[in-house]
């Protein structure tokens, strides 16, 4: 945003490092806490890669609960951010998975959302503004702290999922919501019946915030005051911790199996080798040596495996946008 912001020493240093890399023709890999992407010391051409670690740039910059907005440095660990919000009876609506020490910046960069996805929305829905450093080392700001803001293209939401390949995110403002008081119920049934039921229930006035199928049980989560559930045959209350089992989902795999994240329409019938259904039916986790035959499949392993299934037209747009943000290709591509 325009106007004079106070110079920020740490951010200045990041910007310097990026500018210098332009002069040295040096590739940079942005890292948070590397909970997702382990650092590789060379790029695709085998040239050395310099690390730009943002995990020390951490902490809450501004938080006014009544404005429903928190502004945070990108290196802030999720646990720290979530604890600060919980203290004021608020939370991140998108319930990001915490792989141990994930930062909010890394979570933004990979665009990870939890079980409430179809009910409350995805990570980018809650991004109001970001400050960043582009590939030329310029400090930029897009959006702001407003829940509504349509001035200029929505760059802060667009860069969700950019995986450190277009800009270094230094700060972001996120919309927060009141801490939800939730109860989980479960009932035993076959997978296809559960998929049907979770869709049917999501179309009723029941305030649902989660729907999943795991190890033979249909789980659903409800927020706030609602009609009695346990008077229905087979339904019982169970522990909320199931949502942490599924988010992040870290199953034990058999030898030779791989974990596939499959995103589908919520009503998609059961997919072969599925070991968990989440997000109201829109997310399927498949354990198999072979890639499931669906359009939105990601291999889930210690390293990102980008899908690269864009049409030529979309590919051209993505490459073009990368050049806009990082014309000299300083930031490492995965």
């Amino acid at each position: 945003m325009a106007t004079l912001s106070t110079p920020n020493h740490a951010v200045e240093q990041f910007a310097e490092q990026v500018k210098q890399a332009n002069l040295d023709k040096q590739t940079i890999q942005i890292t948070g806490n590397q909970s997702k992407v382990p650092l590789r010391n060379e790029d695709l051409n085998g040239d050395p890669v310099q690390e730009l670690n943002i995990s020390n740039y951490s902490g809450i910059i501004e938080y006014e609960p009544a404005e429903l907005v928190v502004t945070v440095k990108a290196g802030t660990p999720l646990t720290e951010l979530q604890a600060a919000l919980a203290e004021r009876n608020q939370m991140l609506a998108f319930e990001p998975p915490d792989y141990g020490n994930s930062t909010i910046g890394g979570t933004y960069a990979v665009g990870l959302t939890g079980p409430s996805k179809p009910f409350r929305g995805i990570l980018r829905d809650f991004v109001l503004g970001t400050k960043m450093i582009d590939g030329q080392g310029r400090q930029l700001g897009f959006g702001g702290k407003m829940i509504k803001n349509v001035a200029g293209y929505d760059v802060s939401r667009m860069l969700v999922g950019s995986k450190g390949s277009m800009a270094l995110i230094t700060e972001m403002s996120l919309k927060v919501i009141p801490l939800a008081i939730e109860v989980t119920y479960c009932i035993e049934m076959p997978e296809n019946e559960a998929i049907l039921l979770m869709n049917k229930m999501a179309g009723t006035a029941l305030p649902m915030t989660g729907g999943a199928y795991y190890q033979g049980r249909f789980y659903y989560r409800v927020a706030g005051e609602h009609s009695l559930q346990t008077n229905q045959v087979g339904v019982r209350e169970c522990d909320n911790s199931i949502w942490l089992t599924l988010n992040p989902f870290r199953p034990e795999l058999e030898a030779g199996e791989k974990l596939w994240r499959v995103d589908v329409e919520s009503t998609n019938p059961a997919i072969e080798n599925t070991i968990a259904v989440g997000m109201g039916g829109t997310r399927r986790w498949v354990a198999s040596p072979h890639k499931p035959n669906h359009p939105y499949v990601t291999l889930w392993q210690t390293r990102f495996a980008p899908r690269h299934n864009d049409t030529p037209c979309v590919q051209k747009i993505k490459l073009g946008l990368r050049d806009v943000f990082d014309p000299n290709h300083i930031f490492k591509q995965l």
Binding site: G111, I122, R124, V150, Y153, D154, V155, R157, M158, L159, V160, G161, S162, K163, M166, D263, Y296, T298, P306, R307, H308, N309, D310, T311, C313, V314, I317, K318, L321
Partner: peptide, 29 residues
């Protein structure tokens, strides 16, 4: 686009969020 070529932008897409970008782009993109 101006060539009449069609692209699909989906919430499920991998990588950057072009669907979000199109929202509020005022007929320019």
């Amino acid at each position: 686009n101006m060539d009449g070529e069609e692209s699909n932008f989906d919430e499920k897409d991998d990588g950057i969020d072009l669907l979000a970008l199109m929202n509020g782009s005022e007929g320019l993109l």
